[in-house]
């Protein structure tokens, strides 16, 4: 029951978030600030994770290729497919749901419990538009780049690990990367990135904005933001896969 009311409340919130901004210039500056917080600050983590995951994927694939019938290019091919289709868009988004989601929920939640949101409202500012819209825009704009970066570092990690371990040569790996490449897969990854960015930023803002109580409740909101945006990502992933790939 609570979940259903919350879903209703969430969509009502979105209506206010997307109502006309008071001051375009101020919103523009807010978007740039948020791009820094949401996007740029995630780059090191994403690059590190993706590099290592790509490396492990390549090693796992190579180590499990017992059959001599499988061409050696399969290693690069499988690393590429796994990275583009699921690892970079979905797994990285889930990880960022933890990092960015808890960050947004605790920031907005703190503003709620310290009455900063009330202060905005009293001035006649649309607090949802002012606080939440720039976060959503920044997320939706930066996630595709983050996911591309993740794909690139993952494939690079695979290359380095494969060649270093002597399981595959550079030529074979790259041949594998090019093998049967469907550009549509990249679009699929980017669509997922945009959708997941929207889910993370809006759901985390929702739990932050409707925090009631004090500092303890901010912690709770932040946990809920991570849990529910992760669930929403998994559900959306399932739906998108059905819609796009099948």
């Amino acid at each position: 029951m609570k979940t259903i009311t919350n879903i209703g409340k969430y969509f009502i919130m979105l209506r206010y978030v997307f109502s006309r901004p008071e001051r375009f210039k101020i919103y523009k500056n807010r978007v740039f600030d948020e791009i820094e917080i949401i996007g740029l600050s995630s780059i090191p983590l994403v690059a590190l994770l993706s590099g290592f995951m790509g490396a492990v994927m390549t090693l796992q694939t190579a180590a499990n290729m017992d059959s001599p019938l499988l061409p050696i290019e399969t290693i690069g091919y499988i690393t590429r497919q796994t990275t583009i289709l699921e690892f970079s868009p979905t797994v990285i988004s889930l990880i960022l749901a933890g990092k960015i989601g808890s960050n947004i929920a605790s920031e907005v939640g703190t503003m709620r419990v310290t009455e900063q949101i009330d202060a905005l409202e009293i001035m006649g500012v649309n607090s949802l538009g002012y606080l939440v819209l720039p976060k959503i825009i920044a997320g939706v704009l930066t996630f595709p780049f983050i996911i591309i970066l993740s794909i690139a570092t993952s494939l690079l990690g695979g290359l380095v690990a494969g060649v270093q371990s002597g399981l595959v040569t550079q030529e074979d790996y790259i041949k594998g990367l090019r093998y049967w490449f469907i550009p549509g897969d990249i679009n699929y990854a980017l669509v997922k990135a945009v959708v997941f960015a929207f889910i993370i930023t809006s759901i985390a803002s929702f739990y932050g904005y409707y925090t009631k109580g004090g500092a303890l409740d901010v912690g709770k909101s932040s946990t809920q933001a991570v849990v529910f945006s992760s669930i929403a990502i998994l559900v959306a992933n399932f739906i998108l896969t059905n819609l796009i790939l099948l």
Binding site: T114, Q116, D118, A119
Partner: peptide, 8 residues
Amino acid sequence: FQGSALFD
């Protein structure tokens, strides 16, 4: 506001 509510 009672707690000032400055934007931190």
